[in-house]
Design a protein around this nucleic acid. Structure first.
Lengths: 219, 219
DNA sequence: ACCACAATTGATCAGATGGTCAAGCGTGTG
DNA sequence: CACACGCTTGACCATCTGATCAATTGTGGT
């Protein structure tokens, strides 16, 4: 048997099956939808199982505990959250880079508001399961981008506000449309799915960013 | 007995006592702190009772159910949230009015982040207990302020972005420091309690608002 | 002192819910 | 065909937790 060594299904990794993978995906999707709305403690695993079309016991076959499932969802979603930030790089014009970032973030808020809400809930709980990531990967990435913004500042290509706040405010404005979607819709009757509304929001955010990064010297 | 009629302690309202009122206050304070961090379902009423220095049974004497307590906390907090918005009125200079509003909101985020978090959690759940208020009082107030902003627009005293977004973004940026305090502190090592940090945040937000409301025509 | 009622307690219940267990089913591979 | 192993199920358990109840204590007013 040649296959023995390079398909390490021994002990650690169970043999991956078509149905198995499909089920895992469906569970993760259903779990994200539920967790993002009702939080960890407010979600029952039998609800998730029902949404995914499985029995509770069967769900527990794929994820041993509710917490493990929650962690898996969190991990899978993290990359989606970080990825747009990576794209701010030194090779671009600052204004174009920021505009691109804002657009990406607002698109993410429109296309996957659950991801935004999940992280918001987790952070608001005190991020007991993300504290490592916030202090680790996220901080490293943010520090790098802050350094880049400071570099642009030194070159006089963007304004003088503390870069951290610029990032925070971009996050805040874009994620607001995901996290507070109910309120936004309740007050305006519209959604980011409405292209005109999306464009309004985008332009307002870009104006705000311009005010922070490229605004006129306020004398 | 003259007093009989105008102190209506008959049937409906139980006689209000010093200890009773004090306990109610302590319970509401403790409940706000807990609910704002772990949400409705994630909070046990015996935790709240312990924080307030009472037994669980005794807490249930003052608030019949967990839900009733949650609602009471929500109601008591709502006014704190709305009040700054009321102060934007036609009698002021637009720029001063907006700057004042932003300052008030950021102070609220610093001085009572729990209130902000409580509402954020509730809205993210879909606001099942606030839907009435969002569609009612809040919408009326927001509509009125939006009308005022439109009036200022017509007079050419502020910029041309849709007023709703201006309000949303002010809420988003200010509340971000309360709702995501853990993340902000994790990434910067600082808090709004640090006066210098507060001032940085405030100036950045004011610059953003200027960009939206008083920005240069982007030609 | 007495009374009415607020305040407080401990025991206890009932339902919800996360998780376990042992057994059966399906399917691809030797 | 038969074996192995992933998949699925239903019954069951243990615990947590919101809520109830009866009984006792404290207290202000007359």
């Amino acid at each position: 048997m040649l296959a023995g060594t390079d398909s390490p299904q021994s002990a650690t990794a169970p043999r991956t099956t078509a149905t198995g993978e499909a089920n895992r995906e469906r569970i993760l999707d259903a779990a994200l939808a539920r967790f993002a709305r009702t939080g960890l403690s407010g979600t029952r695993i039998d609800e998730i199982a029902a949404d995914a079309g499985l029995s509770k016991t069967n769900l527990l076959y794929y994820f041993r505990t509710k917490n493990a499932l929650y962690l898996a969802v969190l991990r899978r979603t993290l990359e989606m959250w970080l990825e747009p930030l990576r794209q701010i790089d030194a090779g671009r014009d600052p204004q174009a880079a920021l505009a691109h970032y804002v657009t990406r973030k607002l698109e993410a808020a429109r296309d996957c508001p659950e991801a935004s809400r999940l992280f918001a809930l987790e952070v608001m709980r005190g991020a007991p399961m993300l504290s490592g990531m916030i202090a680790g990967d996220l901080k490293d990435l943010v520090d790098a981008k802050v350094a880049l913004l400071r570099h642009w500042q030194a070159e006089g290509r963007i304004g003088v506000h503390e870069p951290h706040h610029l990032l925070f405010h971009i996050w805040a404005m874009t994620q607001h449309y995901a996290d507070f979607a109910v309120q936004v819709e309740g007050l305006t009757g519209r959604t980011l799915d409405d292209p005109a509304f999306f464009e309004q929001a985008l332009q307002a955010i870009l104006a705000a960013v311009s005010g922070m990064a490229f605004g006129p010297p306020k004398d």
